[in-house]
Computed example of a mutant assay.
Amino acid sequence: MNTTEIVLPGLVEPDGLQLRDRELPAPQPGQALVRVEASGVSFAEQQMRRGKYYDQPRFPFVPGYDLVGRVEQAGPGADPALVGRRVAAVTKIGGWATAALVDAGDLVPVPDGVDPAEAETVVVNGVTAWQMLHRIARVRPGGTILVLGANGGVGSTLVQLARHAGIRVVGTASPRHHDAVRSLGAEPVSYKDPHVYRQLRDLSPHGYDAVFDHVGGPGIAESWRLVRRGGALVSYGTAATRDDRGSSRLPVLLLFGRLLWWNLTPNGRRAGFYNLWAGRRNKPAHQAKLREDLTKVFALLAAGSLKAQVAARIPLTDAAEAVRLAESGTVAGKVVLIP
């Protein structure tokens, strides 16, 4: 099968993305050939474009952290019943294409009747939000959490999952997104307010059961101070250093060091960094956990308990426009590429 791909050739502006056509080989043992119906523009790709993602491959490569599509062919050893099924996968790279070869063990069935673009918005975002809330922070019903960037792809999903679980949510966002955040069930606070941390403290005087921080940088210390005794700080990004020059690894390593130090300090609180790929060395177990969690997220989406936050649907060939929009900070939810 031929595929059309978006190639990231190096450190380029969005207009520097390249379009190429090539023929895909037949699926190898354990692989499946997927005709892509939707792929997303996440913060990971924004970082990769700048060479700032922690473990990104060498240029050039095809971005695309996740995808939704239909299986066209199953390779030797892959379940032949997959053929014709709509599936989703977390790929890390390779999703910005019209067709892709994917490890069959990474495929998760998408419920019938769910729109591909809507399903795409909760693949990596849904798994990330579910695992941070239920596997790491383990917040109970009746608790209170703080979500930084509650209008973003992960943030908006996290808000909804928490509200569905009976958890109160306070979320930061630009004032232009407050109505959207409020409609999801969270209490919005402007991150641009000079007294934002005072406001956040006033909304939960005894602290938060969990704080979810994708920003990193100096503000991570303020997030730590907002965690109550028995609570958890879950860091999952370094957006504050997105445009910084220099090493892509140094900000992450500094953040790891700070979180480790706080964790070693006996104060009744926990701090950690969420990594979707942790445990990948035990591949079958990692795949099984991801499949279990994403299946639960898809079930909520199919039932209407989780609303997909599609910021825009843009043709794959207009990937530059999609990247600019995703990086503009003007949209709520996720920008989706449609091959």
Rank of each mutant, 00 (worst) to 15 (best):
A129F: 01
F256E: 04
G153T: 00
V139W: 00
R22V: 05
A173V: 10
Q47A: 15
R258V: 03
D179V: 15
L255Y: 00
R20V: 12
P284V: 11
V169S: 06
E118K: 06
E327A: 15
V127M: 02
G217V: 02
V110H: 00
A117D: 14
A210R: 01
L148R: 09
V323S: 04
T317G: 13
F256W: 13
A312T: 01
V147D: 05
R313E: 08
G152P: 05
L11V: 12
H286S: 06
L316V: 11
R201A: 14
R70W: 05
F59I: 11
G153I: 01
S39A: 15
V310T: 11
R176T: 08
R324G: 11
A44N: 12
Q18K: 14
P27M: 05
K334I: 06
Q199I: 02
V147G: 07
V297M: 14
P14V: 10
R270S: 01
Q47E: 14
L203Y: 01
Y236F: 14
Q160I: 09
H134K: 12
N263F: 02
G94I: 06
V181I: 05
M132H: 00
E13W: 02
E321R: 15
K192V: 09
L107S: 10
A150C: 03
Q287A: 10
P80V: 01
A278F: 11
Q160A: 13
E72P: 00
N2Y: 07
F212A: 00
P60M: 11
R176I: 12
G95N: 04
D243H: 15
P266Y: 11
A38V: 08
P315D: 03
R182I: 10
D21P: 03
V12G: 11
G155I: 07
G105V: 12
D244R: 08
V154T: 05
E5D: 13
V154P: 00
H134F: 15
A303T: 04
A303G: 07
R50W: 09
A210C: 04
G231I: 09
E37L: 15
G279V: 04
E23W: 03
L255P: 00
D21Q: 08
S174V: 03
I220M: 07
D318F: 05
G10S: 02
V36E: 04
A299E: 01
G237S: 09
Q46G: 15
V189H: 05
A326G: 06
Q56N: 13
L148E: 06
E5R: 13
R229K: 15
H177M: 09
S248N: 02
A311H: 12
D112R: 13
R70M: 13
P57I: 14
K283P: 00
G75R: 03
G75D: 06
P29N: 04
L294F: 10
S156L: 12
A99T: 04
V234P: 05
G105C: 12
G246D: 10
M48I: 06
G105I: 11
G84Q: 13
W130C: 07
G40L: 08
R85V: 07
V90F: 04
R281T: 09
N267K: 03
